[in-house]
Design a protein around this nucleic acid. Sequence first.
DNA 1: TCTGGGGTCCTAGGACCC
DNA 2: TCTGGGGTCCTAGGACCC
Length: 413
Amino acid sequence: MSEKIRRIAHLDMDAFYASVELLRYPQLKGLPVVIGGGRRPVDAALTDGQSELPLHRIALDAFPRLKDYTGRGVITTATYAARQFGVGSALGLMKAAKLCPQAILLPVDFAEYRKYSRAFKAIILEIAPLMEDRGVDEVYIDFTDVPGGQREGGRVLARLIQKAIFDQTGLTCSVGVAPNKLLAKMASEFNKPKGISIVHEEDLADKIWPLACRKINGIGPKADEKLQGLGIQTIGQLAQQELGWLIDHFGQKTGAWMFDAAHGRDTRPVVLESEPVSISRETTFDRDLHAVRDKAELGAIFTRLCQQVADDLQRKGYAGKTIGIKLRYSDFKGVTRDQTLERHIADAKTIRHTAGLCLKRVPLTQRLRLLGVRVGSLVKTDTTGALDPNAAATPLSSAQRAADATGIPDQLF
DNA sequence: TCTGGGGTCCTAGGACCC
DNA sequence: TCTGGGGTCCTAGGACCC
């Protein structure tokens, strides 16, 4: 009998947002380009006086530069030419402007990226039907039973998929193929861009153990710092630790997971479909707002967020019963409050009312920089529409009455 | 002139029930 | 006259990911 070896691929699009922008504006190739901000439409400025020109003919002078930007925001992604100046993801735009003032600044065009995202995923699905969506620019693919999926450890199929995506979209990607998702994810980073990396079980010591623990998907800055404090830098060092010792330091669940990860073990399946748990909208204001002084502006934003969440729910066919708010103060500290209703709802009015009650339970003396609205505990609504259009909020809980009595000023919402 | 937006999962305490 | 032990739901916060 033919023994099939489990082969899982992780496919990661190369510099996805920037590559999509370069398809539109090939004249920017090789230049430092930064994508972010995303607040002001830039195409008006772009086409100003040049509205007859196709996008690829727009003169470089017409593109906005980082140095001319005023306002908040961070870089979502930067081209390699821009990264040479030390600017990259998550850097504040104003700080980035100091490092690379001449960089071209493009707004985030998520609708466009989503179009390409759907396109490359459709191409993959024609070749390999078992695909797990991991966001706009990443997927896992189960190669195990796909024709050619076992050849050269998966390299042949990876090459085929890369070629199909490039031929049909002009975009490049990197692929890692390994016995499981954990290793495939690490492998896809080995040869970027346009890379293919094959990892077998027996490659663990050579290819995985020398890597920093941070390369494990799920070990973030906090866990990494703690590990370093314990003298553990590499995955190999992590693998040397006793299971019990890891559990003592990180808890049962995380400790056991780390132990398995360090030994390259991961049994998670490739998941084809999944239901959302929550749907939310949030926004950072152009300037910090005060609950009393900027009440009208804040109230309008709040109502709009609730409306957007309601629209999202209805468009996607969900209703939820846990309504929550999130806010961030001017000092960047955040709080959340939520309240669970008796019934699932999806209408803006109930969301607005319940979220308003949540907002009353939070101190609002300090200025705010962000406000968000979330609906969780989702259920699918039937095809005819809303589950319970006239659902009302439940009465205040005792905890909320207590909060109301703490002397927090009346919140006007 | 720091620090986006949209998610998931985990933990931990308290309420409440059996 | 000391103090059970589950189980589930709710809430708040935090780590992490794309």
